[in-house]
Design a protein around this nucleic acid. Structure first.
Length: 452
RNA sequence: GCCCUCAUCGUCUAACGGUUAGGACGGGGCCCUCUCAAGGCCCAAAUAGGGGUUCGAUUCCCCUUGAGGGCACCA
């Protein structure tokens, strides 16, 4: 049997849609699974919307997702050029064949394809037998001379030797036009496989580019890991058959096949993606995690300054300090984009005290007294490790016959202004005595109403 | 309006005609705990409806309903 050749054929619109990403992914998976060839072809016959910048969106998104192409722009191949805007000669030659055989005719300046009107039957790799009859002739070349999608799509699939057409279900009804053309050229039909669509999270209809979560560059910007997004996308319409979800891509490549693809549309679930992303995030090696964080803060700094949230620049801090803080966040935070809020008080003395937390903490026992004792203890404590700090505070609590929480709660509030964060002792150690002591003193001054 | 496709918990899904209909996300509860996460244990939650076929339908067939897509000199 000859080698599988699949293609992903986006048109450069300036956006890379999550549905396109999954179509590209399924094509890529099938190519890798079968040892076939993954072709990238740019469908830019609509000259109105076309620019190098738009092409870069496609290349960058595919590269970010790790979907490398074997033939196409930038890598070349034996079936080029791979941009339809550069394939005019090929289309003209194919058009002549149709004119010569009487299957194409000119009318009012446009060229129409003469359909056979026969029922068009395909054996869809996912849906099985699908039959549809095309009812009227359709335009294949506009009166302006530019060829139309259905025509160039089929011509290129023939010329590029595409064996399997894996595309969205929104093309299922177009397929009768395409098979009419294949037959008119005397070319064998490819295997079609129409994958289900991704529906928008809320409301009716398929996901469109204006919907929440539709754009790949948005995930990139938010610090979602591409491995996680790819894993998630694989599970939208496909599964390994056992109950596994988080899987190495190599394993998915090994198991992926067309008959295993679902037939029903899937609703996009941002929460499940967030969870998948988190499972990848916590497993990241420290260096990689810190790099993700660094890149995120860099994008944040480059972007428009958020109202109020500005002023803090963690990247200006000592890199070793930055690193320690981010690693404190890694097991705690669900997403990279939560890091700025989670770590803000490490990088500024101008952090606010959460009034609700303050009210809660100050209402129980005698927090001012506890704070004074904590200050006294930390004045001489060894800040070199979490363990030494914890031992010191444990000893204090034991001496007073109190629980650790009596000191930790008020202490945490004083040094961070909140009740959310890493272990109190990690907090103390990383902040260090030079930040911790003044913060405790400052908080005591306000908490004691100035009467120290 | 015409044509095509689809239909299991709220969501993603598993169950070669025979299962107490399974898992995951989300939700709820309990435990653990220096906060928040995490973790452990537990709970609620589905075969759209109606007809067939069959000893037996989530599974096969038909109808209804619902959902989605296509009917361009867009791709």
């Amino acid at each position: 049997m000859s080698q599988v050749r699949v293609r992903f054929a986006p048109s450069p619109t300036g956006f890379f849609h999550i549905g396109s990403a999954r179509t590209a992914l399924f094509n890529w998976l099938y190519a890798r699974h079968t040892g076939g060839v993954f072709v990238l072809r740019i469908e830019d016959t609509d000259q109105a919307r076309n620019s190098e910048a738009f092409l870069d969106v496609i290349y960058n998104s595919l590269s970010w997702l790790g979907l490398n192409w074997d033939e196409g722009p930038r890598v070349g191949g034996a079936h080029g050029p791979y941009r339809q805007s550069e394939r005019g000669d090929i289309y003209r030659a194919y058009l002549e064949k149709l004119m010569a055989s009487g299957r194409a005719y000119e009318k009012e300046g446009a060229v129409f394809f003469r359909i056979s009107g026969e029922p068009q039957v395909i054996e869809d790799g996912i849906r099985g037998r699908v039959e549809r009859t095309e009812e009227k002739d359709f335009v294949i070349v506009r009166s302006g001379g530019s060829p139309v999608f259905h025509f160039v799509n089929v011509v290129d699939d023939i010329a590029m030797g595409i064996t399997h057409v894996i595309r969205g279900e929104d093309h299922l009804s177009n397929t009768s036009k395409h098979t009419e053309l294949f037959k008119a050229f005397g070319a064998p039909l490819p295997v079609y496989a129409h994958i289900p669509l991704i529906l928008k999270q809320n409301g009716p209809g398929k996901m469109s580019k204006r919907d929440q979560g539709a754009l790949i560059e948005e995930y990139q910007r938010r610090g979602i890991l591409p491995e996680a997004l790819v894993n998630f996308l694989c599970l939208l319409g496909w599964n390994p058959g056992d109950n596994r979800e988080k899987m190495p891509l190599a394993e998915i490549v090994r198991l992926f096949d067309l008959p295993g693809v679902n037939q029903s549309n899937a609703r996009f679930d941002e929460k499940k993606l967030a969870h998948m992303n988190w499972t990848y995030l916590v497993e990241l090696p420290p260096d990689a995690y810190v790099e993700q964080a660094r890149a995120y803060f860099a994008r944040l700094a480059a972007g428009p300054a958020a109202e109020g949230a500005a002023r803090i620049d963690p990247l200006a801090a000592d890199p070793a300090y930055f690193r320690e803080i981010m690693l404190l966040g890694q097991p705690k935070v669900k997403a990279i984009e939560e890091l700025p809020a989670y770590t803000a008080y490490f990088f500024t003395e101008d952090f606010g005290i959460d009034p609700k937390v303050r009210e809660k903490v100050m209402a129980k026992g005698d927090p001012v007294a506890r704070l004074r004792e904590l200050i006294a203890t930390l004045a001489t404590a060894d800040f070199s490790s979490d363990a030494t700090l914890e031992a010191a505070v444990q000893a204090l609590a034991a001496r007073q016959g109190l629980g650790l929480g009596d000191y930790v709660h008020v202490g945490r509030l004083a040094v961070s202004g909140t009740n959310v964060g890493p272990s109190f002792f990690s907090l103390l150690r990383v902040l260090g005595p030079d930040r911790v002591r003044p913060r405790l003193d400052r908080f005591l001054a306000t908490a004691a109403g100035g009467s120290i």
